[in-house]
Amino acid sequence: MKTRNIKTLTVSTIVNIMNDLKKKPLFRIRIILQLLSCLCILFCAKDPEPVLMIDLRDDLKLKGTLSGTVTDINGKPLSAVSVTLEGTDNSTLSLPDGTFKIPNVASGLYTLVFRHYSYKDTTLKSIAISTNQNLIISDTIEMKSSKAKLTGRTVSNKQKAVPGAGLTVTYQPYQTLSGDSGFFSFPELISGQINIVAAYRGIGWGEKKLSLQPGDSADISITLDNEGGSIRGRVIGADNNPVKNKIVSTMNGAISD
């Protein structure tokens, strides 16, 4: 009832103002002020509309988690493996026991990517996450090493074992001495084209070239059937970059620094 009376009064007031406008043009300022006052009354008389409240925290409840374990091919847990949901910003690192957990994963179909500098990148495709699901990958993710393993034996031109021969892998920071019965081992070579040189002073030197892929393992024999001479090469650091001003000497005929 109060609102209806206000609206009736307002209409009557507007009619009176229009009549005054015709009779008394000098009162235009007063009329304008009265009109503004009427508009304010009409606006204030409206009932307030309800405000819609949205709780954004409910959105977090709709997301799930993804967890699992990553190891090498021998079952050894791998730490510091980067685990990423491809196409998203969701990522984490595996713990010392090889476990990982990615929280706040929206529902959808994902590809999981595992990266480590000593291992080949590994992917796990078609991982489906449902609303508010805690998905544990039941199968252990096994990563293959990006390095190669090389073992072998140094022998003379008469195929007799040469223990104590010096061995150097060209363009890689690896060198060793052959042990008893001439056996040697390079457990973590950089995969690719491998050139290994072996020498023993007074017997001779030899070399072997081969190609190794990540995770490969090979066993070779190097025959020291070349007479002594000159050896040229370059010194590189652990980062595989050339190193200047290093003193180069021989280790039973093999290059060392």
Score class of each variant (00 low, 15 high):
Thr3Gln: 13
Thr3Tyr: 10
Arg4Met: 03
Lys7Pro: 00
Thr8His: 11
Val11Gly: 03
Thr13Ile: 06
Ile14Ala: 11
Ile14Lys: 02
Val15Tyr: 04
Val15Arg: 06
Ile17Gln: 15
Asn19Ala: 12
Asp20Lys: 12
Leu21Asn: 05
Leu21Phe: 11
Lys22Glu: 13
Lys23Trp: 07
Lys23Glu: 14
Pro25Cys: 00
Leu26Met: 10
Ile31Trp: 10
Gln34Arg: 09
Leu36Tyr: 13
Cys38Pro: 01
Leu39Trp: 06
Leu39Ser: 07
Leu42Asp: 10
Asp47Arg: 11
Pro48Ser: 14
Glu49Trp: 04
Glu49Ala: 15
Leu52Pro: 07
Leu56Ile: 13
Asp58Val: 14
Asp59Glu: 15
Lys63Cys: 09
Gly64Ala: 09
Leu66Glu: 06
Leu66Ile: 14
Leu66Cys: 11
Val70Ser: 05
Thr71Gly: 02
Asp72Trp: 09
Asn74Leu: 12
Lys76Cys: 04
Leu78Met: 13
Leu78Cys: 06
Ser79Val: 02
Val83Glu: 03
Leu85Ser: 07
Glu86Ala: 14
Gly87Thr: 02
Thr88Tyr: 08
Asp89His: 13
Asp89Ser: 15
Thr92Asn: 07
Leu93Tyr: 13
Leu93Ile: 05
Ser94Lys: 01
Ser94His: 06
Ser94Gly: 04
Leu95Val: 03
Asn104Ser: 09
Val105Met: 03
Ala106Phe: 05
Ser107Trp: 02
Gly108Gln: 12
Thr111Val: 12
Arg115Pro: 00
His116Phe: 00
Tyr117Gly: 00
Ser118Gly: 14
Ser118Cys: 08
Ser118Met: 11
Tyr119Cys: 08
Leu124Phe: 14
Thr131Tyr: 12
Asn132Leu: 01
Asn134Leu: 02
Ile136Leu: 09
Ile137Ser: 06
Ser138Gly: 04
Thr140Lys: 12
Thr140Asn: 11
Glu142Leu: 10
Met143His: 07
Ser145Asp: 00
Ala148Met: 02
Ala148Gly: 04
Leu150Trp: 04
Thr151Asp: 06
Arg153Ser: 01
Thr154Arg: 02
Val155Gln: 08
Val155Trp: 02
Ser156Phe: 03
Asn157Ser: 11
Asn157Tyr: 04
Lys158Asn: 15
Gln159Ser: 12
Gln159Leu: 15
Lys160Cys: 03
Lys160Tyr: 08
Pro163Ala: 07
Gly164Leu: 12
Ala165Ser: 14
Gly166Ile: 04
Pro173Tyr: 11
Tyr174Glu: 14
Gln175Lys: 14
Leu177Ile: 09
Ser178Ala: 13
Gly179Ser: 05
Ser185Arg: 08
Ser191Gln: 05
Ser191Asn: 11
Gly192Pro: 12
Gln193Ser: 13
Ile194Lys: 01
Ile196Trp: 04
Ile196Lys: 03
Arg201Val: 04
Gly202Trp: 09
Trp205Leu: 05
Gly206Ala: 02
Glu207Thr: 11
Glu207Ala: 15
Glu207Phe: 08
Glu207Leu: 10
Lys208Arg: 13
Lys209Phe: 09
Leu210Val: 01
Pro214Val: 10
Pro214Met: 08
Asp216Gly: 01
Asp216His: 01
Asp216Trp: 05
Asp219Val: 08
Gly229Ile: 00
Ser230Asp: 00
Arg232Glu: 12
Gly233Cys: 06
Val235Lys: 00
Ile236Arg: 03
Ile236Val: 10
Gly237Val: 09
Asp239His: 05
Asn240Gly: 09
Pro242Asp: 01
Lys244Trp: 05
Ser249Ile: 12
Ser249Val: 11
Asn252Gly: 12
Ile255Arg: 00
Asp257Cys: 14
